[in-house]
């Protein structure tokens, strides 16, 4: 076999370095996320007056391998990313982590657990957490005295 055959992929290092620079310290690497101190999945959480929204990128996790719980002010995302099955395969590069993950976050307010919704599309999980009634902002009518 010619030597070039065993590894026909040589990533373009210059490009990688440049992109990595953008990446560093900004987006936790999924590969490092399993079995190391890096938390997985990374979360973006935002809010409006009625609800909190949590979003996580979990590519390759099937809906049936994912569990989302909300109790009080706590959100739990748990799941498994399964390795590719198949015999007779050799890995030339392995950056995508596999295994089980759990992430628990404390939210700033209580949420209405019965109305929490979770959607998974193209590997992006979005959890909509309506705020509990007592946590919603109220407009106070000011009376002229």
């Amino acid at each position: 076999m010619p030597g070039g055959f065993m590894n026909p992929f040589a990533a373009m290092n210059q490009l990688q370095r440049e992109v990595n620079r953008l990446f560093d310290g900004y987006l936790p690497s999924l590969g490092a996320g399993f079995g190391s101190a890096t938390v997985f999945p990374a979360l973006n959480i935002w809010e409006d007056s009625d609800a909190l929204y949590a979003e996580a990128e979990i590519p390759g996790v099937a809906p049936e391998d994912l569990e989302v719980y909300a109790v009080g002010d706590e959100l739990t995302i748990r799941g498994t990313r399964k390795p590719r099955e198949g015999e007779n395969v050799a890995y030339h590069r392995r950056e995508r982590g596999t295994g089980e993950f759990t992430r628990v976050v404390t939210l700033p307010v209580n949420v209405d657990a019965d109305k929490v919704k979770a959607a998974l599309k193209d590997g992006v999980l979005t959890v909509t957490l309506p705020k509990a009634e007592e946590a919603k902002p109220r407009r106070i009518t000011v009376k002229a005295g």
Partner: peptide, 24 residues
């Protein structure tokens, strides 16, 4: 921003397979 996706590169007897994480 543009990000570099994590990839696996797998060799099988008749092909190379690239798996890339591209959520969204």
């Amino acid at each position: 921003q543009t990000y570099m996706p994590n990839v696996d590169i797998i060799e099988t007897p008749d092909a190379f397979v690239v798996l890339a994480d591209v959520p969204g």
